[in-house]
Each structure stands twice: as C-alpha cells, then as structure tokens.
Design a protein around this nucleic acid. Sequence first.
DNA 1: GCGGTTTTCGGCAACGTTTGCGTAAATTAA
DNA 2: TTAATTTACGCAAACGTTGCCGAAAACCGC
Lengths: 336, 336
Amino acid sequence: MFESSTIKDIARALNLSTSTVSRALRDSYEISAGTKKLVMDYAQQVNYRPNPNALSLKERRSKSIGIVVSEVANHYFSQAINGIESIANSRGYTVIITQTHESFEREKTNVQHLASRSVDGLLISLSAETSDVSHLEQLHQRGLPIVFFDRVPERIDTFKIIADNAKGAYEATSHLIRSGHLKIAHISSSAHLSISIERLTGYTDALHENGLSIHPEYIKNCPHGGMIQDEVETAVKELLSLKNRPDAIFVAGDRLTMGCMHVLKKLNMLNPTKIAIAGFSNSDVLDLFNPPITSVFQPAFDMGQLATEKLLELIEAKFPVTEFERNILQTRLFIR
Amino acid sequence: MFESSTIKDIARALNLSTSTVSRALRDSYEISAGTKKLVMDYAQQVNYRPNPNALSLKERRSKSIGIVVSEVANHYFSQAINGIESIANSRGYTVIITQTHESFEREKTNVQHLASRSVDGLLISLSAETSDVSHLEQLHQRGLPIVFFDRVPERIDTFKIIADNAKGAYEATSHLIRSGHLKIAHISSSAHLSISIERLTGYTDALHENGLSIHPEYIKNCPHGGMIQDEVETAVKELLSLKNRPDAIFVAGDRLTMGCMHVLKKLNMLNPTKIAIAGFSNSDVLDLFNPPITSVFQPAFDMGQLATEKLLELIEAKFPVTEFERNILQTRLFIR
DNA sequence: GCGGTTTTCGGCAACGTTTGCGTAAATTAA
DNA sequence: TTAATTTACGCAAACGTTGCCGAAAACCGC
C-alpha cells in the first residue's frame, strides 16, 4: 500500500540514530553541518514527509481547525470559507469543513466528530434549528478554543465575529421605504437566531423612524432558514393572502431570498410593481435576476479571515484568554 | 487545555491494564462480562473517545479522504460534495475539502498536503490549469487510491466518474439550433480538460448533424475556467465583434456561464433576441434569470456518491484492484 | 599531556492505541 | 486429587516523532 519513508528509514540508511535525524531535519544547533547536509539531502531525495498523526499524538495538537456552517452551497459561507482558508493555510493549519444543513442534530454530531478528531479549535456558525448550545458550552468549558461567526450564541463567552445586521437590515428596509413602499413585510430564519433578532431590530427601527407601524402579521419566520421550501412558500402565501397585502418584503437570508423569489415566480408575482424584494445575500449573480433585487452584502471573506485570526490567537495563546471581543463588520447595500 | 480521557485513565481508575480496557471496549471474547460492563459503563460516564491520531498511527490509515475541487462556491461541486459526504460519513470517514481555484500550483500543494496528511484516498476533479498530472501519477503509483470525477486525466488508470458531457453538449446545442439559431458559438474552459474536449465534441456533432459548419473563430477557450473574468470578457467581445456575429453561445461550464452573462449584461446584450445562451450549470436559480437560460444539469450529487463508493472500494480492497471502470452518468437538459 | 569544555551524537521514554504472547486462576476431565 | 484445559487478564512491543539526559569524541588552554 501507500507507504512513505520515515525518520527511522533515514536513520537506518544513513547509519544514524532517529534523534539525530530528527534534529538534523529541524536544523538543531547540536548537529554538525556535515551531518545536517547528509540527512537533509537524503530526506529530500526520498521525499520525506513527517507523519502528521505521530506529530499530533506527540504534540497533542493536530494543526487543524474545524468549521461548522449550514452549507457550502451558500455564497455567504463559501466566501467565509475562502477567508478562513486563506489565513489557516498560511499559518500551517488544515481546515475540516462540515455542514449542518440547518439541522441541530447534525450540528451536534458534527461538533462531536470534530472534537473527537482532536481539532485544535472550532469556527462555527449556528444552525437555524439550534437554540440550545450546551453541546458547545461543554467543549468550551473543557478548554476547546471556539470562535463564533455570523450566527452567534449569547451564553458562551468567547470571540464573536458578526456583521452589522441591524444596520444592514435598517438600510435595506429604509431603501424600500424610500422607493415608495409603505407596507413592508419581513421574512426571516428561525426567530431565536442572533441574526434574525438583529435584522428584525433593523427592520423595526426603520419602520419606526419613518412613522410606520409594525404589523405582527407582516413578520414571518422559517425555522429551517429556507432549507425547507414549503416553509418559505407558506410564509409568502400567507403574506400575499393578507387583507392588507404588503407591497414589499425584506428577506433576511441568502437561501431565504432565493426561496422567496422562487415562490413569487411560481405565483407569477415576481414583479416589483406587484411586490418588491430586498434581502441579505452574498450571491454574485443577483444583477442577472429579473427583477434585479436590492441586497445587503456581508463582508464574508473578511469575517472568515478575522474569525480565523481570533481562533488562532486563542489556540496559540500561552495563557488562557479571558478578554473577548465582539467584532462587528459593516455590510454594504447594493441598490438595484 | 482541552484534554479527554484515555484508555490509560480508565485503566488506572478501574485498576486494570490498558490491554484489558482496550479489549473490553472492543467487546473481545477474552474479557469477562462483568469487567466489560464495568469498563463500558465507566467509559460512557467519562465520555471516552478514542484518540484518532493514535489510531491512525497504529492502523496506518486515517479514515479520512481528501477532496480536490476548483471551488465550493460552484453549485456543481457543492452538490458533488454533498454526495461525497453522504457516503463518506455513513462509512465513518472524514472528508477534507480543498480548493484549487483552478490553479495548477494550488492543486499540487493541495494534493501534497493531503498526501502528507495521510488521507486514505483522494477524490479529485482537475483544475483548469492542469495538463500535467505527474504529481498525481506519482502518488497513484505509490499506491494511494485515487478516483477522478468530472475532469479526469487520460493517463492515470483508475476509476473515473463523469457525466455524459458530449451528449449534454449535443442536446444543448441542438436545442439552440431547434430554436432557430444557426450561428452558434462555443465558450469553454481550458482546451486540454476532458470536459472541454467532450463538450466540444457534442457541440460539433450537433452542428454537423444539422448541416452547419464549424467556424474555428466561433470557439473560444478561457484557460482559467472563468476564474479570471477578463478572459471571459475578451472571449465574448471577440465573438461579438466578428463580422459574422453569432446569434447564440453554448457555454461549457457553470462559472463560465455566469461570467458570460455578466459580460453580456454589461454590454447590454443580455437579450435572447440579440444573442441566446445555453450552458452547463447546476445552479438552482437559473429560472430567476433574465432571460432565463437553457441549461445542462449534471447529476452532481450522484456523481459524488458514486465516486466515493468507488474510492472506498479501492481503499478497503483486500487485494490490489486492477480492473477499473469509467462510469458515465446522464445529464439533463432544462429548457427555459 | 593533562583536566576541562564544547561539540556531536545515541539511548530512552513518552504520546494513545492495539495485539501477540505469556500466565495465574478457575474450571473441567479423568 | 491431579492433570489438562479454559478463562481472564497483564506485559511489552509497535506505529513515528521529539526531547531529556548522558556520553564519546573533539577541542581548548596551559
């Protein structure tokens, strides 16, 4: 099978001890220049690669970090992953990506699996179903470094990287108002999620500031964040069948925005004169849509980078970190 | 820091030897029922998880497989990854996803990294820049199980999972012809890629069968598969500035299709009466586009599943496998 | 040429796990 | 009761690596 040469092999071939070879390869001062060259040349020749499992076992760290996101087929997350990779790889870390598909159960098993895989730290954005974070709290208390991004829990005290969701939502809603819409509905992911709460705040703030009142029946939640299209369809249909039918919808999520548009298209309502749409999305093809929709763009790449930097800070800290920040990055409104 | 209990801890606590504990946990016949229960209960209580690094070191396998794709922000690949995960996870394997961003260099470093991470096997779709596969050939000869999917090399003899690209391209091109287009151009990824060759074949076959001749100036390649938008823009502009301007383009790739539409939009040519588009894409939002475009859908999820099954077959084979298949899955044409 | 450094290297243990082998105790057979 | 067998467990090595400690060899000053 697939075997690569070890330090032992090199030691045997060169008639040296394993410790000498090990030190020669790490350019230790206690090895003579001649021996170093001998060893290094030979190692090069046989294409020696240190066995990461042996290293991990010895050093008690795996030089890998785990990522938990809803799904990679979401432009926000795929961009965040690119940011994460850019930092992690440059610092010698491998990333292991897992998807929850918005399921609490999958989140738990993924996290368990990553922990048992002995990752050095965790980068996580909660699933839509997750309201109980005890599975993470437990790991956190046992000392596993964790950084949250995007969807963050209240209870766990660690670094959190989020976008300015309230402001983003405020701007999008304000844009709809400025465009002449007065009956603005709101479709969001599960109600307990941090992003949902923050975006709802921005939405209501915008309405208030413009002297519009909040209609509870205008606010719909999809507990599975758009993974279950039926939830989206029901929400949209309920909005459309209201006696006082809204003339615009502010949608608080990437997948949700797409789902919403699909429903409207199906109902032949995909027309800004009938109902306008603005939503959170990191998609790069929104301008190709008919109609093009105004969107709130999150700096996903930067968020991924920052989250990773913070995580590595935790992982590589010599002393336990007790001061945690909550970094808030600015969103960008694309008016279309 | 983050420590979990080991077999040693259990042995010490229960006043047993590590071997007894190990065997009790694996339900060995040479351990008494009483001891087994004792050990298992205690292990449960302290939430014992075997250290995967120690296991990998001992068993000389990591129970992990490496994936190399262009980018996860591509619906074809994200769907394929879902298929891969569904099989791999159910069989107890972890997947490590890496992205080449269509760069040959990144492909080489990713593959090197995965190999040195001692993955048990590799699932790979070549980058657009890759024409030399010696880095993979080498690993393959040293016994590392590899299965290719989507973009496959000629030279390396192993399992290959592909879509029926020629047929898919043929159908898309035929559709354009049936729609009344006679001057059909073709934009594709780098020319040496298997998918480019096969899709070109389908394209030319369709033209031939319909009595249309092939205009070499109608065929454009983007060596970076659309990652460099300038390449796409140049290709489109060159097509549009032809004295005999094409009235349709068959685009052979997901990212390429989007890039192409962006250019047309920018040039205010995004209109089927000006130029029609049909292309390979696994995007789920194509029907929201303006204009909606006809697309060739690949069974990405199934391809991922099949590729993983084949890879695990190789990995877990007791004897070296010498008979390899080339599985061809059917595409589906969505006419819009 | 002596004692004392310095240089250069090897031996050993350890990380957590499995497994072949050995063996005391318990059971069975005679 | 004794011998033969079975049961139930412990010991130690191994996977690949590093680091502590010790030690031979080379060097130094005088």
